[in-house]
């Protein structure tokens, strides 16, 4: 893995579901009312009295091979050299293609301003040497920000330590989308935390964007060229038969 890449570690064993990250994110990024760029999802497993509670911070996974960047028609979404997927709100035209193509269902659409938005890992803070707002505010240290490879090593060590208490503990960092910037330490299977176990970018998105869309529109100038050829050739041929007898011809 690229040494330059940044990432975020979410340790659900330390998360108490306080939602401080959600609030910090909303305040920092001016997220509109009723919408979230990061939120805590809660789940339960088992029956009383043996109920297990799950909290997980859901936000953009920062895929290395992001579908949203691929489909964005105006280049509003792009990847920084650090592997973070950011968005230029000024460029967004609100077409919602990213909203509908993300395998994690992350980008949200804000009808009030006709734009979509998602977590940018607070790159405006990170570029000033600060941590993302959610990481800076997390009271339990469940969130860590830093070098992606180092965080991965930390996560693996942490899972090893947790195995005693949580036999199903695992590191969640799906490979399917080229690897992700978010690394989760989970105490149970991803499904229990509302996470997509095997994210898959829709085939219609991939085949269309990679192979058909860039070339298909050339058929239109081709049709125009055909018409222009016919325009010239038919007139040349008609002029040759000037004394012909096709009475309907326009140029008689």
């Amino acid at each position: 893995m690229d040494k330059q890449k940044l990432g975020m570690l979410v340790d659900v064993a330390k998360c108490i579901g306080c939602n401080a990250c959600t609030i910090a994110c909303k305040a920092e990024n001016k997220i509109p009312e009723g919408a979230f760029a990061t939120e805590i999802r809660q789940g339960w497993k088992g029956k009383f009295p043996n109920v297990v509670n799950f909290y997980s911070k859901i936000a953009c996974m920062h895929c290395s091979d992001p579908a949203c960047v691929k489909v964005c028609p105006v280049g509003a979404l792009y990847q920084t050299p650090e592997g973070i997927v950011v968005q230029d709100q000024d460029k967004c035209v609100g077409c919602q293609y990213c909203v509908n193509s993300c395998p994690f269902g992350i980008p949200q659409y804000n009808r009030a301003v006709d734009k979509s938005f998602k977590c940018t890992m607070c790159m405006h803070r990170v570029s000033q040497g600060m941590e993302p707002a959610c990481v800076a505010t997390c009271p339990t240290g469940a969130l860590q920000f830093g070098n992606r490879a180092e965080l991965r090593a930390k996560a693996e060590q942490r899972v090893k330590d947790l195995k005693g208490r949580f036999p199903l503990a695992n590191v969640y960092q799906p490979e399917e989308v080229g690897g992700t910037g978010l690394i989760y330490v989970l105490t149970d299977t991803p499904a229990n935390f509302g996470l997509v176990e095997h994210p898959k970018v829709s085939a219609t998105v991939e085949v269309w964007q990679d192979y058909v869309q860039p070339y298909a529109a050339w058929l239109i100038p081709l049709a125009l060229l055909g018409s222009a050829t016919s325009f010239l050739s038919s007139r040349l041929l008609t002029n040759k038969n000037e004394h012909g007898d096709h009475e309907e011809r326009g140029d008689k």
Partner: peptide, 14 residues
């Protein structure tokens, strides 16, 4: 494109 051309400028469309 073809329809616009054939319906107007093509000599045969009359």
């Amino acid at each position: 494109c073809m329809h616009a051309y054939l319906g107007s400028l093509h000599p045969g469309s009359g």
